[in-house]
Amino acid sequence: MNMAWHNSGTTNADLVENLWRNKLITQPVVKNAFLKVDRAHYAPSQPYEDSPQPIGHGATISAPHMHAHAVETLLPFLLPKVNDDDPGVIGQPGRPRRVLDIGSGSGYLTHVLAELVGETGVVVGLEHIPALKELGERNMAKSPEGRALLDSGRVRFRVGDGRKGWSEPSPGESQPGVGGAAAPDAAASEGEKKDEAGGWDAIHVGAAAATLHDELVRQLRSPGRMFIPVEAGNGWEEQYIWTVDKDEHGNVTKKKLYGVRYVPLTDAPK
């Protein structure tokens, strides 16, 4: 996927149009989301170049084509589904979307994800370094749209160990309808009701894990999907993107996609 010289542009619109032209973005709704988020608010230099950039603290903002692939892979679990007559979107009718962005770094992808989940969805950006959590908040506050997402509670940045996932409390009365649960069916089991209130429809992991952490898989809703780079564990420093799907019955399917190079998902520096 080394196509940086084809995808880079001189403006945000150029960059996104090149990603579209080269079929790194294939869905119009994804293209529109990327157009709404100016990468210049998140990348420290050369924001419209299709390459990763360091953002401090041993972290990077990934190349735009990797963000595009992550979003398109997770897309069926990001878009709100209004009713059962919408066959193009996988999900439970009326259920607000909950998305966890582990290793949120600059906050760029967190913002793009928030543009897709709808007005009742919530995206939580999780960082193990407080300074990066604050960086994501500052970057998002650079635009009126980003400030509105933060003020509404539709985007929240948190500090925690991404290997353990995250449990985000339900919104209070000051944020009615944002990221809450749909009214549970009277016949639903207790486990199903718990899944409605918590868990994540989609989990994006932006750093390479040593393994497919069971806690992250457990926190996936049914149905749900995780996009995660994982170290091969063969001593050759190889990493691969995996998807982990959980169907409506709780059955888990894991799929290995392609080789990548991410910073490791580790403890915060001392």
Rank of each mutant, 00 (worst) to 15 (best):
P169M: 07
A186Y: 00
Q175Y: 10
V178D: 03
S167H: 10
A188W: 08
A187I: 02
P171Q: 07
P184Y: 00
G180M: 09
G179N: 03
E192W: 03
V178M: 02
Q175V: 04
Q175E: 09
E168T: 05
P176A: 02
E173Q: 12
E192M: 14
E192P: 00
K164R: 15
E173S: 10
K164M: 12
A181I: 11
P171V: 04
V178K: 03
S189I: 10
G191P: 00
S189W: 00
A187R: 15
S170L: 10
P184E: 05
P169S: 04
A181D: 02
G191N: 13
A188I: 02
A186D: 14
K164W: 05
E192F: 06
E168D: 03
K164T: 07
G172F: 01
E173P: 13
S170H: 09
A181L: 07
R163S: 01
P176H: 15
E168I: 08
S189V: 03
R163E: 01
G165I: 15
V178C: 07
E192I: 10
S174D: 09
S170I: 09
G177L: 14
S189C: 06
E192Y: 04
E168S: 01
P176F: 05
A182T: 12
G191L: 13
G179I: 08
S189T: 10
A182F: 04
Q175M: 14
E168H: 07
A186L: 15
G180Y: 08
E192Q: 15
S170A: 05
D185P: 00
A183R: 15
P176T: 13
A188L: 11
S170E: 04
V178H: 04
A183H: 09
A182E: 11
A187F: 00
G177F: 13
D185L: 14
S167G: 05
